[in-house]
Design a protein around this nucleic acid. Structure first.
Length: 107
DNA sequence: GATTTGACTACTA
DNA sequence: GTAGTAGCCAAAT
């Protein structure tokens, strides 16, 4: 528990993202108290390959699927989001302001 | 132990 | 509206 690095903290929040919703790196970082260090969330996502975290629900501030390039498939991330009811076009989440899930507010 | 990197964000020109 | 730079902090090399 305590020895859990920054990753575990991110994993917990990401796994709590409601189905069909998305959030941004900065929002998670802010929730963890690491406001401004959105990169740390991204780094945690990098390790998410080992962990079972729905990283496809985490996108950048613009609702753009920034991590899509890191997925196995080219459009795997988009397919996963669309499978959850999220509308994605041109690697960008549509209605992002509506689908946006803020852990600091929702939790 | 120091340097580089990194799935970001915000500000400035 | 687009482009470039700086700031953030932790993990990997």
């Amino acid at each position: 528990m305590s020895s859990e690095g920054f990753f575990e903290q991110v994993y917990k929040v990401v796994e709590k993202i409601p189905h069909g919703r998305v959030t941004s790196y900065g929002a998670i970082a802010k929730y963890l108290g690491a406001s401004g260090s959105a990169r740390m969330v991204g780094w945690a996502m990098n390790a998410s390959k080992k962990a079972e975290v729905p990283a496809h629900r985490v996108v950048n501030r613009n609702g753009l699927l920034s991590g899509k390039h890191h997925f196995k498939g080219t459009h795997l991330m988009q397919q996963l989001l669309e499978s959850e009811g999220v509308v994605v076009k041109e690697n960008q989440v549509q209605q992002f302001d509506v689908l946006f899930w803020d852990p600091r507010k929702e939790l």
